[in-house]
């Protein structure tokens, strides 16, 4: 295949994983106006839990669901105990969740060790498919791309086409007004936080199937999701999709044209967007 198309496809599949992580972050921010710095922790913990379950049961899907449920519950705990009281103090929430991620890093290290592990995937996923162009491409990467698109579309539909979604959107616009109409905004907040954490955990299992899981990735994925939502615009699901695709593409094309500075370029993209559009590509004015 044309080298250009192949690298673009690689960028989009990598972006799919970034999208899955960042969509949870942007959802939480969109509704609650807080940033959870423990998002990378949810990703890595999810990956580890998914790994343990999938390895024990031999079932990948069970691992993914188990990770989402377990980390979702943990998210509920964190929200109720540490975040709820400081709902309006976004900086304090950011710092408290940063503390959570410090602890998480250390405890995950104690539990899962420092060596790399990878979530076992079904053998049939580990083949190469033949693309229309005649080239062969790893099936798992295409599966991940499809998965991300499906989840993104479902999220968009739920938020824009259902009653639950309209409550969420109303909560985004004006939480005081929304609760005045009888909606229990607190429950909505908790649910969104749980869903956001579960999404990160699910992303951890997906990412952990393609790449190894190891200490330090909590920080890496937190940073990448921050970059994605800053580029795409905080609180916007389509924004996260665009941001993730851009970050994925820049990092892969960076590896081709300037491998030394591939990582720098990814961050430089963010600085570039900020310089011209501080609210991000699809963000509302701040």
């Amino acid at each position: 295949m044309d080298q250009f198309l192949l690298v673009a496809l690689n960028g989009l599949t990598l972006g799919s994983i970034y999208f899955l992580v960042a969509s949870g972050l942007t959802l939480i921010f969109g509704l609650m106006r807080v940033i959870t710095m423990a998002h990378g922790t949810s990703y890595l913990l999810g990956g580890y839990i998914g790994y343990s379950i999938a390895r024990a049961s031999g079932n990948w899907l069970l691992g993914a669901l188990g990770a989402a449920v377990a980390v979702g519950l943990l998210g509920l705990f964190i929200h109720q105990v540490l975040i709820r009281r400081f709902q309006d103090d976004d900086l304090r929430v950011a710092l408290i969740t940063l503390g959570v991620s410090l602890i998480g890093t250390d405890l995950m290290f104690a539990a899962f060790g420092g060596t790399a592990t990878q979530v076992p995937i079904p053998a049939e996923w580990q083949t190469a498919l033949t693309l229309p162009s005649g080239d062969r491409y790893p099936a798992i990467r295409l599966i991940i791309l499809v998965l991300a698109v499906v989840i993104g579309v479902v999220m968009w539909l739920v938020i824009n086409r259902t009653r639950a979604g309209s409550i969420v959107r109303a909560g985004v616009d004006d939480s005081a007004m929304t609760s005045a109409t009888g909606v229990n905004v607190r429950v909505v907040f908790a649910v969104v936080f749980v869903v956001g954490s579960a999404l990160a955990a699910f992303a951890g299992v997906v990412g952990g199937s393609l790449f190894p899981l190891l200490p330090g990735q909590d920080g890496t994925y937190l940073l990448f999701s921050l970059v994605v939502v800053i580029v795409g615009g905080m609180g916007s699901i389509p924004g996260a999709a665009i941001g993730a695709a851009l970050v994925g593409l820049v990092s892969q094309f960076g590896l081709v044209f300037a491998p030394t500075y591939a990582t720098v370029l990814t961050f430089a993209l963010m600085v570039f967007v900020l310089a011209f559009r501080p609210q991000g590509i699809l963000g509302r004015a701040v």
Partner: peptide, 14 residues
């Protein structure tokens, strides 16, 4: 403010 926190964090990583 919250953006400033994230942006400075990311710039530090750049």
């Amino acid at each position: 403010a919250i953006y400033f926190l994230m942006i400075t964090l990311a710039i530090g990583q750049v």
